[in-house]
C-alpha cells in the first residue's frame, strides 16, 4: 500500500520534463551531486567539531555552549545546501531511488539523527550553565554526541551506497531485501 503510493509519486515525478532534463544533463547533474557531497565539509565538519567538544576531545578549555552556538550557523547553512541538493538528486532519479534499500535506510537514519539533535539541543539548553566550563559534557549529552556521530556515519555510508546497484529491484534479491527496498511485482 505505502510502497504503491511512494512508487506512484516517484513515477509522477519521473514523468516531469525537468526531472529527466536534470537526470540527462551531464554537467548539471554532476554539479548538483558534487555540491551535495562537498558540502559535507561544511555541515558534517562543523558537527564533528561540536560533538567532539561535547565528548571532551577538542577545545576543552572553551565553554561547550560557545563552540556549539558559534558553529551552529555554518552547520545549518551547510545542512540547508545538502538538503536542497539532496532533494534535487532525488527529483532527478525518483523511481530507482524510491526502491533503493540504501536510500530507505538513509531516510530512517536521517529521521533518527534529527530527533537526536532535537533532544540534544533541548537538554543542552536546559542546564548548560552548570557544566559549560567542564572539559566534558554530562553523560546524557555525551551519549547524544556519540549517537549523533554514529548516525551521521551511517547516513554518509548509506548515501554513498545508493550509487551501487547490488540490491536493485531488477536483481534476484532475497524476500527480505525485496520487501525492505519496496520492490513492486510488475
Amino acid at each position: 500500500m505505502l510502497n504503491q503510493v511512494l512508487l506512484d509519486f516517484a513515477e509522477w515525478l519521473d514523468s516531469q520534463s525537468w526531472s529527466s532534463a536534470l537526470h540527462e544533463s551531464y554537467y548539471m547533474y554532476n554539479w548538483v551531486e558534487s555540491t551535495h557531497v562537498l558540502t559535507l565539509m561544511i555541515f558534517l565538519g562543523m558537527l564533528f567539531v561540536i560533538d567532539l567538544r561535547m565528548l571532551g576531545l577538542t577545545m576543552t578549555n572553551i565553554p561547550a555552549s560557545i563552540v556549539a552556538r558559534r558553529l551552529n550557523r555554518p552547520m545549518v547553512l551547510g545542512f540547508s545546501v545538502m538538503f536542497i541538493t539532496g532533494l534535487l538528486l532525488y527529483y532527478a532519479v525518483p523511481v530507482r531511488t524510491t526502491q533503493s534499500i540504501w536510500f530507505r535506510i538513509k531516510f530512517v537514519l536521517l529521521i533518527a539523527a534529527g530527533l537526536n539533535a532535537w533532544l540534544f539541543h533541548r537538554r543542552m539548553n536546559q542546564a548548560v550553565a552548570s557544566w559549560d566550563n567542564d572539559p566534558v559534557a554530562p553523560k546524557p549529552l555525551r551519549y547524544g554526541a556519540a549517537l549523533s556521530l554514529t548516525l551521521w556515519a551511517g547516513v554518509v555510508t548509506t548515501g554513498r551506497l545508493i550509487a551501487y546497484d547490488w540490491y536493485d529491484c531488477y536483481r534476484d534479491n532475497s524476500e527480505l531485501i525485496a520487501w525492505a527496498a519496496g520492490c513492486m511485482s510488475e
Binding site: 559535507l40 565539509m41 555541515f43 558534517l44 565538519g45 562543523m46 564533528f48 554518509v156 554513498r160
Partner: peptide, 14 residues
C-alpha cells in the same frame, strides 16, 4: 574517505 573529508573540511574551515 568521505567522513575524513568532512573532518578535514571542518578543521580547515574552523
Amino acid at each position: 574517505h568521505l567522513m575524513s573529508l568532512a573532518m578535514i573540511g571542518g578543521t580547515v574551515l574552523v
